[in-house]
C-alpha cells in the first residue's frame, strides 16, 4: 500500500493519468457504438460491438480496481474476500448460461427431442 507521504505524492500523477485513460476509453466505447466509420462486424449492433464494448469496460474496471482501489498491492486477505465475491458473481452469470441447457424444457440438444414442447400460443 502506498502509505508513505512520498509514495502518495508520486502516485498522484498516476491517478490523473489513469483518469485520462478512462476518459479516452469512454469516448472510444461511444464512438464504436455510434459512429458508422468505427462500426465493427456487421452494420449496426452485433456480437463484435458487444465484445469490444464489454472488453473496454472490463479494462476500465480493472484499472479502477487496480489503481484507484489499490488492488495492485493489497494484502492477501482482501484478494481472498473480493475474489470469492467475483467467483460467486460469475457463478450467477453461469446460471443464465445453464438455463439454455435445460433438458426438460428444451429437450436433448443432440437428438432434438424433449419431454415438454409446448405450442407457443398466439397473442392477439
Amino acid at each position: 500500500m502506498a502509505d508513505s507521504v512520498e509514495e502518495i505524492k508520486k502516485a498522484q500523477k498516476l491517478y490523473i493519468l489513469i483518469g485520462l485513460v478512462l476518459f479516452v476509453f469512454t469516448v472510444v466505447t461511444v464512438a464504436v457504438a455510434t459512429q458508422p466509420w468505427l462500426d465493427f462486424g456487421a452494420h449496426g449492433f452485433d456480437k463484435a460491438d458487444m465484445t469490444i464494448g464489454l472488453l473496454i469496460a472490463t479494462v476500465k474496471a480493472t484499472l479502477v480496481g487496480a489503481i484507484f482501489m489499490h488492488l495492485n498491492h493489497e494484502k492477501k486477505l482482501v484478494y481472498w474476500v473480493f475474489g470469492l465475491g467475483i467467483i460467486m458473481g460469475i457463478a450467477l452469470m453461469l446460471l443464465t448460461a445453464l438455463s439454455f441447457a435445460d433438458p426438460i424444457k428444451y429437450g436433448n440438444p443432440k437428438t432434438g427431442d424433449g419431454f415438454y414442447n409446448p405450442e407457443i400460443p398466439e397473442i392477439n
Binding site: 473480493f82 458473481g89 446460471l95 443464465t96
Partner: peptide
Amino acid sequence: DTGLFNSKIGIWLFLASEVMLFGGLFS
C-alpha cells in the same frame, strides 16, 4: 495477522456482497 485495519476487511466483505448483488442483476 491480516496486515489490515479492521474496517478495511469490513468494506471488502461488503463490496464482495455487492459484486454478487449486481452480478445477479446483470445475469
